Amino acid sequence: MIINEAADQAKYNEQLEKLEIQLLLEGIYRHYGFDFRNYVYSSLRRRIWHRILAENLYSISGLQEKVLHSKQVMDRLLGDFCINVTEMFRDPSFFLFFRVKVLPLLKDKEFIRIWHAGCSTGEEVYSLAILLQEEGLYEKTRIYATDVSEFLLEKAKKGILPISKMQVYTQNYIKAGGTRSFSSYYKVIGGKVLFESYLKNNITFAQHNLVTDNSFNEFDVIFCRNVMIYFDKYLQSRVHKLFYDSLCLQGFLGLGNKEAIVFTDLAQCYEELSVQEKLYRKIK
């Protein structure tokens, strides 16, 4: 009897917690326009409780009150929701494949548009700029780097990284087929690394919400790597449709190593260039 009562109470608490999270996410959407309602529940739950403890609060409802009345608290929660796991030339084999197999197919274009969706703090964007520079394509390319978080975008625009990461990034650069000295792309100032300004010349950083915003241009290449793993199936389908509508015919889509297009409604619209690197070409 006691065991049954404990089980019933646990189930009740779980249902109440889900309701509180739903109300929090609905409030964020209605008040700020950020829609996290179709993100993976378990991931959101962990991040919500992290923010509750960090704000010295005791409940999800308490966090909701703070979030709706304080943009500063909302910004901190948004930072928790926006997964910031990135590095220069992350997954070097992806960048090597893109350099060797994809860029030669773009050389004859008069102008190249690339959308890097979910760019975080910009490490992979600058990696792409370096790669294009080395292949002689940067001058005729415009990279649109977007993220839902203004905080992360501001960091990306600065192009400043801790020098402690340069050893790992240099190894990634070499594995990605780098043809120069990686240190030639940055200056060291007071223990920080500042990218050369010319790498920013053809990059436009802008806020864009994959969940609620629409297509804003036609692109030859779209990168969205390790972002959709945090979306549920409905939201993944919505974003894949957005990318399909944004890609020109024969355009290229690059996904993260844990993502795929094979089980989507649009799979037949792409040619798979690499199973391992998750690179696809739009064929219809």
Rank of each mutant, 00 (worst) to 15 (best):
D91Y: 12
R47S: 04
A206T: 11
E134H: 02
H240L: 11
L128A: 02
I114D: 02
S184Y: 11
F34P: 00
E272A: 09
E135G: 07
R142H: 14
Q171K: 12
F36N: 02
E259R: 07
G33K: 02
F89E: 03
T170Y: 08
I163E: 14
K192I: 01
W115Y: 05
C82N: 13
T204G: 07
G178E: 08
K233C: 01
R37K: 14
K71A: 10
E124R: 03
D80H: 15
T141W: 07
D232M: 05
E259S: 10
Q207R: 15
Y138I: 06
V188Y: 08
L235P: 07
G136E: 08
K192C: 13
V67Q: 07
R180G: 06
G251Y: 09
I283A: 12
K278W: 06
K241S: 08
F81P: 00
A145Y: 04
M166T: 12
G62S: 01
Y234R: 11
P104E: 09
W115H: 06
H240I: 13
D108A: 12
Y12D: 11
K258A: 15
H208R: 14
P92T: 06
L77W: 04
F97C: 10
L63A: 00
M1I: 02
E271G: 09
R225W: 03
E110C: 01
K175M: 14
P162V: 04
R113K: 14
D220C: 04
K66H: 06
Y244K: 01
R45M: 04
E124A: 04
A6Y: 11
L137Y: 06
K284F: 15
N38P: 01
F97E: 05
V73M: 06
H50C: 03
F111P: 00
R46F: 00
F205N: 13
R37H: 01
K11R: 14
I174M: 11
L23N: 12
V227L: 09
V239G: 03
